[in-house]
Lab assay of single mutants.
Amino acid sequence: MQNSHSGVNQLGGVFVNGRPLPDSTRQKIVELAHSGARPCDISRILQVSNGCVSKILGRYYETGSIRPRAIGGSKPRVATPEVVSKIAQYKRECPSIFAWEIRDRLLSEGVCTNDNIPSVSSINRVLRNLASEKQQMGADGMYDKLRMLNGQTGSWGTRPGWYPGTSVPGQPTQDGCQQQEGGGENTNSISSNGEDSDEAQMRLQLKRKLQRNRTSFTQEQIEALEKEFERTHYPDVFARERLAAKIDLPEARIQVWFSNRRAKWRREEKLRNQRRQASNTPSHIPISSSFSTSVYQPIPQPTTPVSSFTSGSMLGRTDTALTNTYSALPPMPSFTMANNLPMQPPVPSQTSSYSCMLPTSPSVNGRSYDTYTPPHMQTHMNSQPMGTSGTTSTGLISPGVSVPVQVPGSEPDMSQYWPRLQ
């Protein structure tokens, strides 16, 4: 039975679970980093996980050691009161100082060594604690504590007292930064006198190289990059290397530039699409467009005044059976039934097929058609009795279509119309 579990990581490298990497692998990681390889490249070359490479390099940059820390136990506290007071002093002298600059000053002034120097995250935590204590304490208590930490007896009751030896409130920041720059020169002199001055200088240079600022491109470089971006948004590694040799930039910087440029292009394309949609959409909808001609068919113009009344309900007709019959029939052209047409008796099958359309009241044959006459024609229609054979009435077949029909004066039988409509 094995005491430890061995495995293979996602890159194909072998590791022992819970145990640190061998010293030979750690040394190779540092050597590759000094030669300029990126952590992701080191991870692929040595088949070590990216997190492990970053952790080893980060500890090497901070402490200069590649040895693993002790497994188990607690780390001794490195942010001692003396170190905290120095950090507060540096922050007062130059409020814009960075944590890694404070760390360098602690090393250069001999406050800490490589073994007990606090990390950048520890210094940031100390600065946050100082800021929170400043908010919790009152103004007087804060000034007393700062005077105690600074070891001075001057008056701290006013704002300019934060910067000793100065009279203009805006000047101390520059003086403090100048003092810090002077301390940086002392850093070089002190570290050069040490035993491991060369190694420390190499480590600091490598650290500065990794902690780079934003790349500033010249106009020629920007023009070359934009020209390549117009050709393709995704250049391959050969195109990037050719462009890197042409404009004297690292291939990694060119790759990052193209990634950022593609993101910018997507944002601009989104804005262009929004403007295009806004320009195509009308600002207001016309009133006429809300009524579609496919839904509402136009009603033909009436030929006679009587045809303006298109349904039985508008003429005072309360018989719903006839109203439904007229509205359900398709529109037909106007025609006239003459008196000489043969009077065919209704076929029983045809009569039964339209039995649902006729009223059940037996008085329908005896009703006159003056009910369908509009009010303004009552006088004219009353002067001509319906009993004469020459009287013409208008029957409504569908809305908007008038059918003048000659009705025999002897017997106005409704059943004569249905064979004609089939």
Rank of each mutant, 00 (worst) to 15 (best):
Q2S: 10
Q2Y: 11
S6V: 05
S6K: 07
N9I: 01
G12E: 03
G13P: 01
N17T: 05
N17M: 00
R19M: 05
P20H: 01
L21A: 06
P22D: 05
P22S: 07
T25C: 10
R26N: 01
R26P: 01
I29F: 03
A33N: 15
A33G: 10
H34Q: 12
H34L: 07
S35A: 14
G36V: 03
D41E: 09
D41A: 14
I42D: 02
I42M: 03
S43V: 05
S43M: 06
S43F: 02
I45A: 14
L46H: 00
L46R: 01
V48D: 02
S49P: 00
S49M: 01
G51V: 02
G51T: 06
C52Q: 01
V53P: 03
K55E: 00
K55W: 03
Y60M: 04
T63Y: 04
T63Q: 04
I66W: 05
R67M: 09
R69W: 09
A70G: 06
A70P: 07
G73M: 00
K75C: 05
K75G: 04
K75W: 04
P76W: 03
R77C: 04
R77M: 04
V78L: 03
A79E: 01
P81R: 10
E82V: 07
V84K: 11
S85P: 05
K86T: 13
I87T: 10
Q89Y: 13
K91A: 00
K91S: 05
K91V: 03
K91G: 00
C94P: 07
C94H: 15
P95H: 14
I97S: 09
I97K: 06
F98A: 15
W100Q: 07
E101F: 08
R103Y: 05
R105G: 14
R105W: 14
L106R: 02
L106W: 01
E109W: 11
E109Q: 12
E109H: 14
V111P: 10
C112I: 11
N116F: 13
I117A: 09
I117V: 06
P118Y: 01
S119T: 03
S119L: 00
S121L: 02
V126M: 15
R128Q: 15
A131Y: 10
S132K: 06
E133H: 12
Q136H: 13
M137W: 12
A139V: 12
A139L: 11
K145E: 08
K145A: 06
R147T: 08
M148D: 08
M148R: 10
L149G: 12
N150A: 13
